[in-house]
Design a protein around this nucleic acid. Sequence first.
DNA 1: TTACAACGATAATCAACATTATTGTTACAC
DNA 2: GTGTAACAATAATGTTGATTATCGTTGTAA
Lengths: 220, 220
Amino acid sequence: MRDWSPDHPRAKVMARKRAAIVAAAEQAFVRDGYAGSGMESIAREAGVSIMTLYRHVRTKDDLFAAVIESACHPVDMEESAKIEDAMKKPLADILLFIGVMFQERIRGPKTTHLLRVVMTEMRRFPHLGELAYNGLINAHVERLDAFLSTREETSDMPAERRRKIGHDFFERLIGLDDYRVLLGLSAPSEQSIRSRAEIAAQELLAELERDGRAPGTQEP
Amino acid sequence: MRDWSPDHPRAKVMARKRAAIVAAAEQAFVRDGYAGSGMESIAREAGVSIMTLYRHVRTKDDLFAAVIESACHPVDMEESAKIEDAMKKPLADILLFIGVMFQERIRGPKTTHLLRVVMTEMRRFPHLGELAYNGLINAHVERLDAFLSTREETSDMPAERRRKIGHDFFERLIGLDDYRVLLGLSAPSEQSIRSRAEIAAQELLAELERDGRAPGTQEP
DNA sequence: TTACAACGATAATCAACATTATTGTTACAC
DNA sequence: GTGTAACAATAATGTTGATTATCGTTGTAA
């Protein structure tokens, strides 16, 4: 990604065009993959001529790398807001919410396509795999750990132990359905997603109880 | 894949060459993907001229489809033998064996590469996803179900219930590690694989116990 | 041996696509 | 208004790789 000084005479127009290019490229790459997307059609979808496209990016590889890297960042605004909002509810509810959200995201169409593209181009861009794992999965694991470290029920437990039960929580959200989705078979039902999240949450709370903590809502 | 009558004058030579072509193509496609494998290099690796290659297959697409379809069939001979051998041991041992074997296969380098190729070419060949899921995953689930239906401990239980606990067994063998492997990060340790298989086996036996069956080796 | 079809080697064809060159137009700062 | 640099439109270049054509060679069945 080429960039100019921010006080360039026509910086605003160029920034707008660049944004259009990146957006169009992301859509194209995630939808049709690297080989399936032509520079000409990307330019057309961005409402820009091909020469303008090449004034903004040095090569197709550069454009691709930039797009995928940005697409792997899960800094979703509305979602963050919803999470903030949910933080005050009982732990069980929060876990359920996180569990459902994570599954919907990891198996949603955009992530699915992105994962396929990353797997295809992993040889050409060796760091893409780690990037995708960190952005699409690890980020959630660490976010949960950070949350648990602030939560009354779990703030004073050994960090290692906390990390493990958090990790196991996500572990239980992954299953055969993930292979089904990646391979283009039918996506799991909403009820199936919910049930999986319930089990994972229940198990985490049971672990806390085993540690002598009081999760509050377990069968006696 | 073109084929000739088996009583063709030079059928044997041609069959040998065809086998070499398919073998070379499978190796190339699984290693380098569809776009990454050239017809010329496939021919060279098969020890055959490019024109001979084209006398055996109509087009690159045909060759690819044939190769992937055959590669998704998990009819492993030595493995079947090992399974037959293990069938007489206690159920817990058998489950452990199956659990370890399944994980090693599903996350092994060949399957991993195959899955990536399938995901890449799924748009071009829409049935590939189902093919891969059936061959690489469903086949194991159904094989376990068939086995359980012959096993004394489980032969007389409702088929639906049996199917479910068998399915759940594999469900527990899948986890974050699968994403890690698909994305090219470090593969899970042998010990981690074993531990996961143990938990899955334990849970299956616990379910049986809950049904009022006697698995034999559970903590009281 | 002999005829024939498969084979090998190599060049030719063909299309797709990334990248560059050319040229005239346009929008913005001054 | 005017100059300048980004822009659009289009053609040109170059490469890659699949597929085909040509033609002389060779193995095999009769």
